[in-house]
């Protein structure tokens, strides 16, 4: 999957990564090989390689680390 944007969130404490075309993920049913810390229909929180990741149904992610691209590729590799 190609990235559409990678930009700092407004607080500068995480990165917002969005796919080129929005996805329509069913987060309640989504199976991923990651440590899921919370699951709701509107947001799934995961911990991947020690990094906290929030995944939205559109495929948008909030990634709290300095190099979000690698994490984003891992997630999209599983869900897209």
């Amino acid at each position: 999957m190609e990235f559409f944007t990678i930009k700092p969130c407004k607080t500068q404490a995480a990165y917002v990564v969005e796919p080129k075309k929005p996805l329509h993920l069913d987060l309640k049913a989504l199976k991923v090989p990651f440590d899921i810390t919370a699951r709701t229909p509107v947001l799934m929180a995961m911990r991947i390689d020690g990094v906290d990741v929030s995944l939205y149904p559109s495929g948008k992610m909030l990634i709290q680390c300095d190099e979000p691209e690698c994490i984003a590729k891992k997630v999209w590799g599983e869900v897209a």
């Binding site: 607080t11 404490a13 995480a14 709701t40 947001l43 929180a45 909030l62």
Partner: peptide
């Protein structure tokens, strides 16, 4: 100081 906002705010 830099801190992540609440991700579940609608």
């Amino acid at each position: 100081s830099s801190a992540m906002c609440c991700s579940i705010v609608p």
